Simulated scan of single mutants.
Amino acid sequence: MENLPLLKVQGLSKFYGGRIGCTNVSFDLWPGEVLAIVGESGSGKTTLLNSLSTRLTADAGMIQYRMRDGAMRDIARMSEAERRLLMRTDWGFVHQNPADGLRMSVSAGANVGERLMAVGDRHYGSIRAAATDWLSRVEIAQDRIDDQPRAFSGGMRQRLQIARNLVTSPRLVFMDEPTGGLDVSVQARLLDLLRGLVQDLGLSVIIVTHDLAVARLISHRMMVMKDGHVIEQGLTDRVLDDPREPYTQLLVSSILQA
């Protein structure tokens, strides 16, 4: 099924009263592909991400997802229970602020283990072993397994949130500015880690970022948004090296001048 899209989006729109959040967005996402959604603050990229991940209910359009059995399902026609199961198993969501994606009052190991319990794992030994393995995979020392996230740095919290999301082997992960608010050196380390995990696990990722350097490093394809519209899309290197729309040219030149 590698030659079939994992996600098909057609005419997706979300409005806030008379204001456009995003409108008439269509694209296919392929297995193992990383798609970056870029644009300035207020461009609609976060609204689009939240609509795609069903955190917001779209006002128009269709989102179809290819299940593990190969069947293409319309997300809007799923029951609430089916959608919740999808979010706990096949999908992940990495927040910009790790505290939004973690339980800060329980241990690092419990944060990872909870997601395994949500899919039916009840064996304490195997849950703890999986949590230990994932902490090491995201470069958190195994002796921190019983520490709470509040004792971690911002970069460590973000890596813990990534481990919590990936422990159930999802096929699609949504990321909202995952490097935002981190020091440059911490950002670089996190990006290296993300690139390695995406490649090793064959993940499909939709990542929102205002940072074109992040988009270039991690994504295969890019969509540029302005005022709720996708104004340009294509292979990441093509869009950044040869932007066709004046707005994209402005974005790229502002990075070069920074």
Rank of each mutant, 00 (worst) to 15 (best):
A60T: 01
S169E: 12
G70N: 06
L86R: 07
E40A: 14
W30P: 00
Q187D: 01
E33A: 04
L52H: 00
H229K: 11
G11W: 06
D200I: 01
R144E: 10
T23C: 08
M156K: 09
V112Y: 02
I145F: 04
F152M: 10
D183M: 04
V224N: 11
E40Q: 14
I127R: 07
Q158I: 06
F93M: 14
L7I: 11
A151K: 13
V119W: 00
M222S: 03
G113D: 01
L191W: 07
K226I: 02
L52Q: 05
D69F: 10
R159T: 10
K45C: 09
E114N: 09
R115A: 14
M117C: 14
I145L: 15
G120C: 01
S126Y: 02
R73V: 15
V239K: 02
E245L: 11
K226F: 13
L6Q: 10
R164L: 09
G42A: 05
A258E: 04
V214D: 09
G125R: 15
N165Y: 06
A130T: 07
V94F: 07
Y247D: 11
V173H: 03
I218S: 08
T89M: 04
L182V: 02
H210Q: 12
I207R: 08
R150K: 12
R66P: 05
R157W: 03
I162N: 00
P170E: 01
S253T: 11
V112S: 04
A141S: 15
A130W: 05
M117P: 06
L48N: 02
R66M: 13
V34I: 12
Q64G: 09
G42R: 02
M156A: 10
L7N: 02
I207T: 14
L235T: 08
D146M: 11
E177F: 04
V138N: 05
P31F: 07
T168E: 00
K8P: 05
V119G: 00
L203E: 00
A108D: 04
Q148R: 14
L201M: 13
H95A: 09
R103V: 12
I255T: 10
S126L: 11
L85K: 12
R189P: 01
D121Q: 15
Q64E: 15
R238G: 01
S13M: 00
D133P: 00
G180D: 05
F174I: 09
G17A: 07
I162P: 05
A110C: 01
E245Y: 10
T209H: 07
A60H: 09
L240M: 02
L85T: 10
Y247N: 10
E114F: 11
M175K: 03
D28T: 04
P246R: 09
M104A: 00
S107H: 01
S136G: 11
S253D: 12
V34W: 06
L135Q: 01
V230G: 04
G39A: 05
A141Q: 13
T248A: 11
V38L: 07
R195H: 11
S219V: 05
R216L: 10
